[in-house]
């Protein structure tokens, strides 16, 4: 049960959150301009980093906001959490 600091609500148990996968994946502005392989890269390919990872979480049973978490995927230590578009906050 991780302890995750929601940028709006503060530290809460993991069971209040939903995981959303890798952060910083933007939907292409013009999907038609992409080759099938490029589209597949957006759609399916993931860095799946071992170690420091940027990922998004949703405070589903709280404020229902999505936010960014910097977490180590080996130690599970959380370095910081951010609003989708904002300043970091250390746990």
């Amino acid at each position: 049960m991780l302890l995750i600091e929601c940028p709006w609500c503060g530290p809460r148990d993991e069971s209040e959150f939903a995981y959303g996968g890798e952060a910083d994946i933007s939907r292409p502005i013009d999907p038609d301009a992409l080759s099938d392989a490029e589209w597949a890269d957006y759609l399916f390919m993931r860095s799946n980093r071992k170690g420091e990872n940027r990922e998004i979480w949703n405070h589903q049973h709280g404020c229902r906001r999505w936010f960014v978490v910097e977490r180590d995927t080996v130690s599970y230590a959380i370095r910081a959490t951010f609003p989708m578009d904002g300043e970091g906050r250390s746990p």
Binding site: A18, G20, N58, R65, M84
Partner: peptide, 13 residues
């Protein structure tokens, strides 16, 4: 609902 919120908050704020 979650799907709508996801797009709204992460892609089209």
């Amino acid at each position: 609902l979650s799907w709508m919120e996801l797009w709204l908050q992460t892609e089209w704020p």
